[in-house]
Simulated scan of single mutants.
Amino acid sequence: MARPEDTVMVDDLEQNIAAAERAGLAGVLPTSAAATEKALKAVLGPRPSRKAERAPGS
């Protein structure tokens, strides 16, 4: 089961983001695609490289 601190809420309404944050979720209010991507990267951290995801020998 997901824990609130492991969950990100993306919503275009500030009051929904505020409610999510009060519940312990990370909140991202999208203002543009680039800003949303930057905010998600800040919350989630860098994405692993495709090479790191492949099993050895594949």
Rank of each mutant, 00 (worst) to 15 (best):
E53H: 00
R54M: 02
V10H: 03
V8R: 02
V10T: 09
M9Q: 03
A55T: 12
D12S: 10
M1D: 14
R54V: 06
M1W: 05
E5C: 07
E37R: 11
P56R: 11
G24I: 05
L40A: 00
R54P: 07
G27S: 01
R47H: 13
A20W: 07
A42E: 13
G24W: 08
E37T: 04
E37H: 06
L29P: 03
E53A: 08
A26N: 12
D6T: 13
S58A: 12
A20F: 01
S58K: 10
R50A: 12
D6K: 02
R50Y: 03
V28T: 05
E21V: 14
A33Q: 09
P4N: 05
P56W: 12
A18M: 12
P30V: 08
S32R: 08
A55H: 12
E37F: 00
E37Q: 11
E14C: 06
K51T: 04
G24P: 01
N16A: 13
A55N: 07
D11G: 12
G27I: 04
V28P: 01
P56C: 05
L13T: 02
E14V: 12
R22E: 07
A35Q: 14
V28G: 08
A19Q: 10
R50W: 06
S58F: 01
M9A: 09
E5G: 13
A20I: 08
S32P: 08
G24M: 06
V10M: 02
R22S: 06
K51M: 07
D12H: 10
S58V: 04
E14P: 06
P30W: 07
L40F: 11
A2R: 14
R22M: 13
R47K: 14
M9V: 04
E53C: 15
L13R: 11
Q15S: 15
D6R: 12
A55R: 14
L44K: 06
P4I: 09
L25E: 07
L40H: 03
K51V: 12
A2M: 09
I17D: 02
S32M: 09
L29I: 13
A26Q: 13
D6F: 03
R22W: 13
R50F: 08
L25I: 04
A23T: 08
R47L: 15
L13P: 02
G24R: 11
P48R: 09
V10A: 10
L25K: 01
P48M: 11
D12E: 01
T36I: 03
A20K: 03
P4A: 07
A52K: 10
